[in-house]
Design a protein around this nucleic acid. Structure first.
Lengths: 247, 247
DNA sequence: AAAAAATATGCAAATTAGCGCATAAAATAT
DNA sequence: ATATTTTATGCGCTAATTTGCATATTTTTT
């Protein structure tokens, strides 16, 4: 087996499994682990994989691991500030949960008078800290993974209101729209979108052009996307073309 | 499992649950707790999580109301433990908010399987931390003073269920019964009492034989009072005479 | 104050990595 | 075709990393 072949084999395996062990590969291809290690180092040098102790990982896997919370928090603050600028007096606002939304809830101006509807426990808590904000919690069963109320009751509560704005914290968005990996949460988000005149997506740049298992809504249902990078970023071309505003 | 993978797993779990215990992770991933502790320390060093005694917390939630660090309220802990002893498997339990109830929520046994109904944001959050507990939040407008849902919707939701037990955190109790100073909260509590087969009052000793503006219920509607002093305390004579159990 | 739980530390065993070198294989030059 | 240079591979060795365990220490709970 030629060196190039071998490396191609390794790459394919990493693509498939997201990871390889040097020891496995040695036996599998029937070369010494030294050779494997040299291969992995070369591939890592070319930025195709990430070498770790004992083997290697796919780049996507590792980048999700490497996200800098500090940086991320900064990004979320930027987003939160932009989002706050859309909030006006006496609005009715629906929001999901998620750290970005919570961040926004924290920095709402003290004087602001508005009504916030949410099913998220952390978000509700933050809203309740503001003296002039009325908080309506749309309850039901609490999903442990996302700390928000899910289920039929929650959804019918959402359906019974009409909000001016919906702030949607998301997991993934691309040209096809918003997607998520939790079916119960998807249903709640869909109801929220339908119950609001305008939908504003809050997303850190990392999530742009990623996709997850379940579709939440198409780009046509989104009015604005707020990210931590400027609207000029070429990453957003597809969204602008679809008529979505950027902030 | 590679070290990097393990740490990624830990990060994901913290993202999802906001906190992890070293002991859980050790069993889950099947490595020693030493290794987990070393991982947590490394991740904390990189500023990705917050290390605390016993495990770690998500950075984003650490700063808000959710912390399980030292919370010195000896009396309330005693009450909480007595209360927990009344909880049995597969019960339906209604609870108010209040620090005593939250304290109880924190120390519920890990294996306990039960359903908790509440309208309190801090209590709901604590319940949601337990893997086998189902949490139903009975939502409506959030009262800022008490962090619980109040109003017609909340009350009609409460009326629609039938619980085995109601844990009632209170403000004042004397020979005439339980009283409170917030009319909206009173209404919620009254509904909760009616919706439960048994009502258990949680109260620190200081509140015994005090009264506030609005009556919540008479002693005849209370089955048990749990305090931080022993049942022999002469303070409780009137309650015993009225047929209330003491713990 | 005592008991229990969690942590830190030092140490040993196992695994993985890196280096130099000999040899084999391939490419290039003569 | 042969010699020479370059590249690739495996082996022996040492170094570094990781992990679990025992023990002492600290923190928390009772």
């Amino acid at each position: 087996m030629l060196k190039t072949e071998r490396q191609a084999y390794i790459l394919r395996k990493i693509d498939l499994h997201n990871r390889v062990l040097s020891s496995d590969l040695g036996i599998e291809i029937n070369v010494s682990e030294d050779t494997i290690r040299r291969d992995l180092n070369e591939l890592a040098e070319l930025d195709k994989i990430v070498k770790v102790y004992g083997g290697a990982l796919s780049k996507s896997f590792h980048s999700s691991f490497l996200r800098f919370d500090v940086y991320k928090a900064d990004g979320k603050k930027i987003i939160a500030e932009k989002a706050v600028s859309l909030v006006q007096h006496d609005m009715f606002i629906l929001t999901t949960g998620g750290t970005t939304v919570v961040e926004m809830a924290r920095i709402l101006p003290a004087g602001l008078q508005a009504t916030f509807f949410t099913g998220s426990i952390p978000a509700a808590y933050e809203y309740a800290q503001h003296p002039n904000i009325q908080v309506i919690f749309m309850g039901d069963r609490i999903s442990k993974s996302s700390q928000i109320a899910v289920g039929g009751e929650a959804i019918s509560r959402i359906n019974s209101i009409k909000a001016d704005l919906c702030f949607l914290g998301i997991n993934a968005i691309d040209g096809a729209g918003v997607s998520d990996n939790d079916w119960e949460v998807v249903q709640v988000k869909q109801s929220m979108i339908k119950a609001s005149k305008k939908t504003v997506v809050l997303s850190i740049t990392e999530k742009i052009n990623t996709r997850q298992r379940f579709a939440v809504c198409g780009l046509d249902e989104i009015d604005t996307i707020i990210t931590d990078s400027g609207p000029g970023n070429p990453l957003f071309e597809g969204f602008v073309a679809a008529g979505v505003k950027l902030l």
